[in-house]
Simulated assay, not measured.
Amino acid sequence: MMLETYVAYLLVVAAFFVTPPSTSQLLIISNSISHGLDRSINTIAGDLFANAIQIAAAGLGLAAIVAASSHAFTIIKWLGVIYLVWTGIRVFRSESTGFGSSGVRTETSNWTLFRQGFFTSLSNPFAIIFFGALLPQFIASDRGLSLQILILGGTYLVVDGLTLVGWGWLGIRAANVLRRYSSRLVSRCCGLVMILAAALLASKSFAGI
C-alpha cells in the first residue's frame, strides 16, 4: 500500500467522524456521564470489538450477503432498537441514590458496559456494508489482501476509539454542569440520550435505508 493511498484513507475516515454523534457515540456519552470515563472504556472496548468483527466480515465478502437479505437486515436493526430503548428506560428510571460519593453510579458491572457497547455496535448492519464499500477503494489487488485489511481496519479502530473517548470526555464535562443542579437530572438526561439513539436506528428502518 502506497503512503499516498493510506493518507487518503486516513482523511476519509477522519471526515467520516466529523458528524453529529452516532448511536454508539451517544451510548458512550451516556455511560460516561453515568459511570465515569474510566469505566466507559469498557463500552468503547465492546464497540471496537464489534467493529473488528464487522471489518473481518467485510473482508470475507459477507457484506453482499447482509445487503441482499432484507429479513436479516430488519431483524438485526430492530433488535438493536429494542436493546437501546430497554437500556434507556432503565437509566431514566434510576434513582439519584444510585450515585456514589464521586457522583457516578457504580452498580453496573464492567462486563455489562462492555456488552452494551458490543451489541449496540454489532446490531448496526450498516457497518458491514460500510466497510465492504470503503475498504476495497484503498486495497491494491496485486498486494497481500490480509495485511492491507489489517492496516486499514486497525487504523479505523484507532480513529474510532479516540473519537469515542473524546465524546465521553465531553459527556463528563456536561455531567459536571448538570450535577450542580440535580443528580436525578443526570439520570433523566442519560436515559433520554439512550432513547434518542434508539430513535435514530428506528428512523433509518422506517426510511427503508
Results as ranks from 00 to 15, higher is better:
2 M>N: 15
5 T>E: 15
6 Y>N: 08
8 A>I: 12
9 Y>K: 09
10 L>D: 04
11 L>V: 15
13 V>P: 01
19 T>Y: 02
20 P>I: 00
20 P>T: 01
21 P>W: 00
26 L>Q: 05
28 I>G: 01
28 I>E: 00
31 N>F: 13
33 I>W: 01
35 H>S: 12
35 H>W: 14
35 H>A: 11
37 L>Q: 14
40 S>P: 07
43 T>P: 14
44 I>H: 02
46 G>N: 10
48 L>E: 10
50 A>P: 05
51 N>W: 13
51 N>K: 13
54 Q>G: 06
56 A>E: 10
57 A>T: 02
57 A>I: 10
58 A>K: 03
59 G>Y: 13
61 G>Y: 07
62 L>R: 02
68 A>V: 05
69 S>R: 08
69 S>N: 13
70 S>K: 12
73 F>C: 14
74 T>L: 10
75 I>C: 09
76 I>P: 01
77 K>C: 12
78 W>E: 07
80 G>E: 01
83 Y>I: 02
84 L>P: 03
85 V>E: 04
86 W>I: 10
86 W>Q: 13
88 G>C: 15
90 R>L: 12
92 F>K: 06
94 S>A: 15
95 E>G: 12
97 T>N: 02
98 G>D: 02
99 F>K: 04
100 G>D: 11
100 G>A: 13
101 S>N: 07
105 R>M: 06
106 T>C: 13
106 T>R: 13
108 T>N: 08
110 N>R: 12
112 T>R: 14
112 T>E: 15
113 L>V: 06
115 R>F: 12
115 R>A: 11
116 Q>D: 08
122 L>T: 03
123 S>D: 03
123 S>H: 05
124 N>T: 03
126 F>C: 15
127 A>T: 14
131 F>A: 08
136 P>W: 09
140 A>K: 09
143 R>F: 14
144 G>C: 10
145 L>N: 09
146 S>Q: 14
146 S>Y: 15
148 Q>Y: 09
150 L>K: 09
153 G>H: 04
155 T>P: 03
155 T>M: 07
156 Y>Q: 03
156 Y>L: 07
158 V>W: 08
160 D>C: 06
161 G>C: 05
161 G>P: 01
162 L>V: 12
164 L>Y: 07
164 L>A: 05
166 G>Y: 03
168 G>N: 01
174 A>E: 04
175 A>M: 04
179 R>S: 13
181 Y>C: 06
183 S>C: 06
190 C>A: 13
193 V>G: 01
194 M>T: 01
196 L>H: 00
202 A>F: 14
202 A>L: 04
202 A>T: 03
204 K>V: 11
207 A>G: 05
208 G>I: 12
209 I>Q: 15
